[in-house]
Design a protein around this nucleic acid. Structure first.
Lengths: 203, 203
DNA sequence: GTCTATAAAAGGATAGAC
DNA sequence: GTCTATCCTTTTATAGAC
């Protein structure tokens, strides 16, 4: 693929990511994407053929960081350390990839009609791995016998909420944007809640 | 308002709720709503004038149960009891009003452009009340000095996730629909996590 | 690879008969 | 209150010149 081609595609995907996140798939027109990307509309179709294919490309670019988030759980042996890092990593994703998170959330909320099979599969595999790791810790007596599935749902929800429901949190906090400190407080709260609530012991 | 009028309006709102939840505002056409409601499209406009007004009506019908959810926190004195009931109530809403929850989530994720002022205000007031109650408990030594705001965000996120991200949870759980037992397990897990994690003591 | 012009279809909304 | 027919705008997508 030529450099010019890649540059154009990346630019379109970046603009489309933002618009799809802000206004949803149906709420965003290809004309608007082209305008914001500062290209004529037919160029967009030249690169992606259909709006649907562009959306899929955005989804793929967006789920990559989500898939990498569970690395700490795979790589660290100490459950305290692993859970702490997992929570912090997920919160950093919420902070730095809020648009990606919203687009993905929108997709999942509507039953994931556009989510490519391979991505859905990778996510499912990842979730199975996380659950099995939690079970492992429970079996080894490193954690109270909580439901590993529900622990995972809780971790997903309560970290992603800082991206997806950002508006609501800003309302309550009375500010326009969450800052570093908000994310630090969120991390401190969630880490403490989970470690204490699940009786997580160090190795 | 005549009975026939009310019946028609309610029917349209019910159908629109489902479609808006499943496909979003922009993704749902008034023609489709009319078709599913089994009426000609002009009747829909006769009752609601614009698509936007219909959407607002849906949002109002949908936020009512959400506002009632915090009653336990207002009415119960014992924090253990109050938190337990709050979690259970929120989970019941996720189970019985999943469409409402999704529509509202979608609205909030996009920055709440259609949410009527009075509803936004009521929700904000409710959240302030919840936070003040948490602070109260902390001051009285009934709960560890956790961040009350973040505790609330966590409670919202981890209960609503069973409605909003229902698809993802079903994927992991390997089933088509969450049943009674799933919600009971979720309640047991979340109640235990929060009570232990925040050191909540009975009165 | 790029872009002007335009086709083709969908969607919000209304006129006007009943 | 109800509905057929229709208007007008927006939107996806492409033809075809450069």
């Amino acid at each position: 693929m030529s450099r010019i081609r890649k540059k154009n595609q990346d630019n379109i995907i970046a603009v489309a990511s933002r618009l799809f996140a802000e206004k949803g798939y149906a709420g965003t027109s290809t004309a608007e994407i082209a305008q914001e990307a500062d290209i004529p509309k037919p160029n967009l179709y030249y690169y992606f053929n259909t709006k649907d294919k562009l959306y899929r490309a955005v989804l793929e670019s967006v789920t990559k960081p989500l898939l990498e988030a569970s690395n700490p759980i795979a790589e660290l042996d100490d459950p305290r350390e692993a859970l702490t890092q997992y929570i912090k990593t997920k919160l950093i994703i919420s902070r730095d990839h809020a648009l990606a998170s919203k687009t993905f959330a929108n997709e999942v909320m509507t039953g994931a009609p556009h989510l490519p099979e391979d991505i859905a599969g990778a996510l499912l595999e990842q979730s199975r791995f996380i659950v099995s790791k939690f079970k492992d810790w429970i079996d080894k007596g490193l954690m109270a016998p909580v439901s590993p599935d529900h622990l995972m749902y809780m971790l997903w929800a309560s970290t992603q909420t800082y991206a997806d429901f950002n508006w609501q949190i800003c309302q309550v906090a009375g500010k326009d944007m969450l800052d570093e400190q908000d994310f630090d407080e969120a991390a401190a709260f969630l880490v403490s809640l989970v470690l204490k609530g699940c009786d997580v012991k160090p190795l």
